[in-house]
């Protein structure tokens, strides 16, 4: 199992890095746009006053054997769910991963939609479909907020469960304001505002995709760690069992020798 997850970890990591470079370019663009003096206003960036329906998307694994991966994200998600329920009239749960689905069913918490196809290799086309649907719902005003609960990947040594708000995309400006290294005079075709209209939905799609990839990478790392610990424990157990087996065998042989010797000496 450790080898399997190590093998799956590498491609997952590469995919996450590819999406990361795309996301960084988008964020850079937003910051370039901000530098033109354009007020970055967009319906997807603005906070909504209405608090009717919120969606919480929980990303868990399809399989277990990955230590505290699933439980850590589910614990955090339930706390967030309670918080959202006190604020919004209706909170719908979207859950990805069989583990999360069965956990919530056991707890008798209603799931609006469940997904099992994202797993360790989420396809962009599928994510695009979901992202576009969410964007449409948000534009129409059917949902007012969209949160994702997942395990964020920092490095192979650090993964932390987090809940992030993707709609409205308020943190995009914060991320963008962080990297203002170069200043260039761009010509915008047709206008900075129109570019923004194209960039912002794209940023949302990419960020959602990135979250799914991050969760996949974290899952493989967690499984790698858990299975490594299991292998180490089994090795330790084997060596201690071998020692006690050898001791028992040794004492049995000693006993038999004593019996033979004592039998022989009795015949003398």
């Amino acid at each position: 199992m450790e080898l399997v997850s190590t093998a799956q970890f590498r491609p997952a990591m590469l995919r996450a890095n590819a999406a990361d470079s795309y996301a960084k370019r988008i964020v850079q663009l937003v910051s370039d746009l901000a530098q033109t003096g354009l007020k970055t206003e967009h319906p997807l960036l603005a906070k909504r006053e209405t608090k009717k329906r919120a969606v919480l998307f929980i990303l868990t694994a399809n399989r277990g054997m990955c230590g505290g991966y699933n439980s850590s994200v589910l614990r955090l998600a339930l706390a967030k769910l309670r918080e959202l329920q006190s604020e919004y009239e209706q909170v719908d749960l979207f859950v990805s991963g069989k583990r999360g689905i069965s956990f919530l069913k056991y707890r008798k918490i209603e799931i609006e939609r469940s997904y099992t196809e994202f797993d360790h290799k989420p396809s962009y086309d599928r994510v695009l479909e979901l992202a576009n649907e969410l964007l449409t719902l948000y534009k129409k005003g059917d949902i007012d907020r969209f949160d994702v609960a997942y395990v964020k990947f920092f490095s192979t040594a650090k993964q932390t469960p987090v809940v992030e708000t993707l709609l409205p995309l308020s943190n995009l400006e914060v991320e963008a304001s962080g990297n203002n290294e170069k200043k260039l005079d761009y010509e915008f075709l047709p206008s900075p505002q129109s570019i923004l209209e194209e960039v912002i939905p794209n940023a949302f799609r990419t960020l959602l995709f990135k979250r799914l990839l991050d969760a996949a990478v974290s899952e493989q790392v967690a499984r790698m760690m858990a299975m490594k610990a299991a292998t180490d424990n089994a090795d330790e157990m084997i060596s201690s069992l071998t020692t006690s087996y050898n001791r028992a065998r040794q004492s049995q042989i000693t006993n038999e020798i004593i019996e033979v010797i004592s039998g022989a000496s009795a015949l003398k």
Binding site: D32, E187, F188, L189
Partner: peptide, 20 residues
């Protein structure tokens, strides 16, 4: 393919951000 038609780019083009 820009939003309003085709756009040609040769070497040493001025900095542009365009909607595709």
């Amino acid at each position: 393919p820009l939003y309003d038609g085709e756009y040609g780019i040769d070497a040493d083009h001025a900095p542009v951000v365009g909607r595709l």
